[in-house]
Amino acid sequence: MRYKNSNIKKCLNTKTIARCAAFFLFCLLPLKGICQTGESTVDALVEMGFENVGWTEDDDERVYVLQNSAYRLQGVGIGKAVDVIQKTGLSEEKPCRIIVLDNNVPQISLYYHPLKGDSVPQAERKDWHVSYELGDAWESARKIKLKNSSLFKVDVLVYPQLAFKNLVITQIYQVLFDLSPAIEVSLWKGMKLTAQLKIPVYNDGYGKYEGKAHPGNLTLSQRFRLPYNVFGKATVGYFNADQYGFDVDFFRPFNDERFSLLARIGYTGTGYWDGFKLHYDPSTWVATWSLGGSFYWPQFNTQFTLKAEQYLMKEKGVRFEMVRHFR
Results as ranks from 00 to 15, higher is better:
residue 91 S to G: 15
residue 92 E to H: 09
residue 93 E to G: 02
residue 100 V to F: 09
residue 100 V to R: 12
residue 101 L to D: 05
residue 101 L to P: 05
residue 102 D to C: 00
residue 102 D to V: 02
residue 102 D to N: 11
residue 103 N to F: 00
residue 103 N to H: 13
residue 103 N to V: 05
residue 103 N to G: 07
residue 104 N to I: 02
residue 105 V to Y: 12
residue 108 I to M: 03
residue 111 Y to W: 05
residue 114 P to G: 15
residue 116 K to I: 14
residue 116 K to T: 13
residue 116 K to G: 12
residue 119 S to I: 15
residue 122 Q to E: 03
residue 127 D to C: 02
residue 127 D to H: 02
residue 128 W to K: 07
residue 129 H to P: 08
residue 130 V to K: 08
residue 132 Y to Q: 01
residue 134 L to P: 10
residue 135 G to Q: 03
residue 139 E to M: 06
residue 139 E to S: 11
residue 142 R to G: 07
residue 146 L to S: 06
residue 148 N to T: 01
residue 152 F to T: 10
residue 154 V to H: 05
residue 155 D to R: 06
residue 156 V to C: 10
residue 156 V to K: 06
residue 157 L to K: 12
residue 157 L to E: 07
residue 157 L to C: 05
residue 160 P to V: 01
residue 161 Q to G: 10
residue 163 A to E: 07
residue 165 K to Q: 12
residue 167 L to Y: 13
residue 167 L to W: 13
residue 168 V to P: 12
residue 168 V to G: 04
residue 168 V to R: 05
residue 168 V to L: 13
residue 169 I to G: 08
residue 170 T to E: 08
residue 171 Q to V: 13
residue 174 Q to N: 07
residue 176 L to Q: 08
residue 176 L to G: 00
residue 177 F to D: 07
residue 182 A to N: 15
residue 183 I to R: 05
residue 185 V to E: 09
residue 186 S to K: 05
residue 187 L to K: 08
residue 187 L to R: 05
residue 188 W to K: 14
residue 189 K to A: 06
residue 190 G to C: 12
residue 201 V to C: 04
residue 201 V to M: 10
residue 202 Y to E: 05
residue 202 Y to V: 14
residue 203 N to Q: 01
residue 205 G to Q: 01
residue 205 G to F: 01
residue 210 E to D: 14
residue 211 G to C: 04
residue 212 K to F: 10
residue 213 A to H: 05
residue 214 H to W: 12
residue 214 H to F: 03
residue 214 H to Y: 00
residue 215 P to Y: 01
residue 215 P to D: 02
residue 215 P to E: 04
residue 216 G to W: 00
residue 218 L to N: 03
residue 220 L to K: 00
residue 221 S to D: 01
residue 221 S to E: 10
residue 224 F to A: 11
residue 225 R to I: 02
residue 228 Y to C: 14
residue 230 V to H: 04
residue 230 V to T: 05
